[in-house]
Amino acid sequence: MSTSTGSWADAPDGAILLAYANGDVEAARVLSGRLLPRVLAQATRMLSDQAEAEDVAQEAMMRLWKIAPDWRQDEAQVSTWLYRVVANLCTDRLRKRRGVSLDQITEPADPTASAAGQIQDNARLSALSAALTELPERQAQAVSLRHLEGLSNPDIADIMNISVRSVESLTARGKRALADILRKHKSALGYDDD
């Protein structure tokens, strides 16, 4: 079966995934075009490392292709499932990074550099990613889904398979812990100290 991209425009992700499972490679192209940018963005925001984020995105999509024949449309949304897979793959990577000092990452940016703003942004993103490694994994996942992906608490509860109340607790504690970690580096990150 060969299907043009246009005919998939209004189809839900699950239906396209089933078409792929039935042998339609074009469906995989449509699904990749739809999902890969978001998958890569989520991984990039959590890891602040392009190469690692690409590896995670590729791995997450590979897992999607493999689960396709067993996918049950009525049980889960593809996007929810992917958020969960990417969050788990990223926290695995963050765990392996533990022990890297934040001081190594948050070197003050050179104000005379032509791309000073971008350098400072990169330092802040690296510091955020490094600070996430110091959080318990569930807190890091909840904080990133809430504050980096902008998802609602019920959506996060669905992704993490926990109650909304637990999400609220995890995000509150996680954000507080992040503030404690990053406060020490405020000036290095270009913020005025209180």
Binding site: A21, A28, P37, L40, R45, Q58, A68, P69, D121
Partner: peptide, 26 residues
């Protein structure tokens, strides 16, 4: 700042993902 970062999917990543899709297809 993190949310504002543009994310462009490199062509070679898309190619790798499609190659995986092809190889995983039963």
């Amino acid at each position: 700042t993190a949310k504002a970062q543009p994310t462009l999917v490199p062509d070679d990543l898309m190619a790798r993902v499609m190659a995986d899709a092809q190889s995983a297809l039963v």
